[in-house]
Nucleic acid binder design. Sequence first.
DNA 1: GACTATTGTGAGCATTAGCTCAGCTAATTT
DNA 2: AAATTAGCTGAGCTAATGCTCACAATAGTC
Lengths: 206, 206
Amino acid sequence: MPSADRRLEPRRKPRQVRAELTRDRILTAAAHVFAESGYAAGTTNRIAERARVSIGSLYQYFPNKDAILAELLVRHIDRGTWTGADELDLSPGTLEATVRALVRDAIDNHSDDPALLRVMIEEAPVSQELRDTIDRHGKQRTAQVLDVVVRHPDVHVGDPAVAAEMILLTVEINTHKFMADRGTTPVETFEDELVAMVTRYLRGDR
Amino acid sequence: MPSADRRLEPRRKPRQVRAELTRDRILTAAAHVFAESGYAAGTTNRIAERARVSIGSLYQYFPNKDAILAELLVRHIDRGTWTGADELDLSPGTLEATVRALVRDAIDNHSDDPALLRVMIEEAPVSQELRDTIDRHGKQRTAQVLDVVVRHPDVHVGDPAVAAEMILLTVEINTHKFMADRGTTPVETFEDELVAMVTRYLRGDR
DNA sequence: GACTATTGTGAGCATTAGCTCAGCTAATTT
DNA sequence: AAATTAGCTGAGCTAATGCTCACAATAGTC
């Protein structure tokens, strides 16, 4: 294992459609392999094999294994970006509904491929570089939530900025944990409790 | 990297004091090495070197690298077990204080060695076996929290069991995140917000 | 068709980590 | 003080993975 290049940028960018396709095939294959075997056992050779692409091609578009994971992670995060954020209802009495929408989003995002998510969140080594990338992509979401926290009339918290970050992390992680090892608890129960937690916190009256 | 023995039990248990000492030296060294270099780069040879112990000795007490991490993790968890749980105040109006105690515990536990904690939580590969061990040790805490949730007169939540697990995860993770990359926010602010979140959730009035 | 740019190939190298084991030293027991 | 048990050593083996690079194939352009 040579000391890997820590850069996440590829050495070549796709210019033709077939290249774009190869790239996608690699990513899809990587998702499957990681989900099935975990990060360490998900070798680049296996990924290439599964994608029916030569290992050389893989290294055309991804400088190293971590970069593949990074891309998958970023895709997950970006997929979670709140689409209907513009037409947010800021009238009194709608707080719970807004929070519920946020929670539902998270649950949906974690429904697709819990195994892959587990690998990415629990098993993958997170470099400083990757952490920065994640933060950058998370900023958008934090901003959206912060916007609600600041502008919604029903919200009463001490420090909106801290609140926004706390809420996002809490929703994300709890959802992940719940989806990763489902017990006997129905999703609805979980959803209700999580919504209750966040809503009551935000509402903040005693 | 030979396919590692997945067992976490050592091949020999210390019988003499000097052996116990060697074991401790290894663990302490491992904590340092992991904290400094991360999990992947924290090789067993470097750990042994740092502990001034031969690599052979290391493998007397730990069957593989993961086992060392497992022990460190378990120690962290066990250290967090609520000591004063017996004399819990269950009279009305004391809920916030109880929650604050829980949060303070978490903060204290993460103050010692944030770097190591980050490696253990974010970077370390978590096998099924290790996950089970963690769960087992976490059970005690969940039980304690569940006890409060069920018995305290001020608590009103839909599903106490779900609530207990959610609270623990939320407090642990938020504390970890906060301590891992301290921004400009003072600890007190963070503490207050986290306490508010949990307390308001538990109190459950609207 | 000729020429260039882009994309794809895969055997195998370089590296490095985890771990073993044969034999030594120290403690304990008899 | 001999015998036995426990503890310690470290050179080096085994295995495997990430990754390179010289070349081949395909697509695009004139």
